[in-house]
Simulated assay, not measured.
Amino acid sequence: MRLRSLTLRDFRNIPLARLEFTGRQQFFLGANGQGKTNLLEAAGFLTALRSFRAADNRVLIRHGQAAAAIVCELEHERRGDTKITVKIAPTGKELWCDQERVARLADYVGQFPTVVFSSQDLQLVRGTPTGRRRWLDLTLAAMDGAYLRALQNYTRAVAERNALLKRGGSEAELSAFEQTIAPAAADLVQRRTEGVAALAAEVAAAYSRVADGAEPATIGYEPNSAEATAAGWLERLAKGRARDRQFRSTLSGPHRDEVALSVQGRAAREFASEGQQRSLVLALRLAQAAWFHARSGVRPVLLADDVLGELDPARRRRFWSAVDGEAQVLATGTSLPAADLGAWEVFAVKDGEFGEDLGAGA
């Protein structure tokens, strides 16, 4: 997939911008806080109509405006020339694909993959299980509409059950929401098990390339409970009601799963060096891109947000050699990329405005 133009209106700090891309590599150059990441955020919205930075879509709308809009024109392996239009309002989103309204997100998911490489990715290793679960959920949901539906059903039902626990709901009320939670939980555990198993091979291969085969790295799935059936989850939830009432929260379920990352057989969070951790998060994103391509047949657009400059020269060369040489890359930074990374279309960014193409080079 190649992004050929991107038009934004009232998105974050960008009042109006239209950018046209002709090459495979685009670089957005400017000081911090000017709008470079906002542009990548808009491009990343293509995948599942979700921001990689914010859970609340209202923050995507420029201050004082009623709505924001994103329009993408792209070349697509399966669909040919395609135009995507997204309107973001405080009350929700509207989506058009080639002028045809898309009513269900599940019908759209998986068709337009993007992968974000961010300086914040280190938190996937160093941060809490919540961040790793979110990465896994976004990865699997981007390619699997059934996973997205199960996740949405589960999340809503758990939120309602927790609200009941806080206000002392009856056994019958709790049981009603457990009827929704149980099959969704069983489905999520199965799909996460299969998804992580598929991703593990890609992570190991990508880490070997980025780290020059210095040591092995792995990703594993550690479910909070490995109940395989809806009936098993119903029984577990019923048995846990007394404890859940005490803590006023649902204490068992996929919302408490862990995605384990390790280097040389030891937990990466506690034992990996900073260099190993950086290599591991790059491997996670490279694996994500490879898995998207394998699942969909569509080559993802890669969005590199101020990450290449943080790598030492050797790791940067190995990372670049591991990137799909046919993939489009949109990157940001405060200084021009090194010459060994090839030719770029360079755009200046200041106060939400994008200047003339400064020409290829580095």
Rank of each mutant, 00 (worst) to 15 (best):
L280P: 00
E171P: 06
A214N: 11
G275W: 00
Q120A: 11
S273T: 09
V298H: 01
A55R: 10
R248F: 09
R9G: 12
F354R: 06
L8P: 15
Q264E: 12
Q111A: 07
A198W: 08
A267R: 02
F45R: 02
A211M: 11
A68P: 05
W135P: 08
I61F: 06
G169F: 09
A331F: 03
D98A: 12
A17W: 05
R101C: 08
D312R: 00
Y207A: 10
N162Y: 07
E41Y: 00
R192L: 04
F247H: 14
G195E: 14
I181Q: 01
A228Q: 08
L311V: 01
S208Q: 15
N162P: 08
P183L: 14
A287F: 01
A230S: 10
T334H: 02
D324V: 05
T7L: 14
S262K: 01
D98I: 12
Q288N: 11
F45C: 02
G361W: 14
A55G: 15
L303F: 04
D357N: 06
Q190H: 14
E274N: 12
Q264G: 12
L280G: 08
E41C: 09
R299A: 11
L303W: 06
L39Q: 00
D340H: 12
A200G: 15
L151N: 10
I219Y: 06
A338R: 00
Q152G: 13
R58P: 12
T128V: 12
A206R: 07
S335P: 00
V109K: 03
Q276S: 08
F28P: 04
Q99I: 01
R299D: 14
G44V: 05
A331C: 11
L311A: 01
G195F: 14
K166T: 07
R133G: 05
D212V: 02
G169E: 00
V158S: 13
V115Q: 12
T114D: 06
R315C: 10
R79G: 04
S262Y: 02
L151S: 15
Y221F: 10
H76A: 08
W344H: 07
D10E: 14
S119A: 14
D305M: 02
R316I: 01
S225W: 10
S335V: 13
T128F: 03
R167H: 04
D56W: 05
E274K: 01
D121N: 10
G127V: 06
N224H: 03
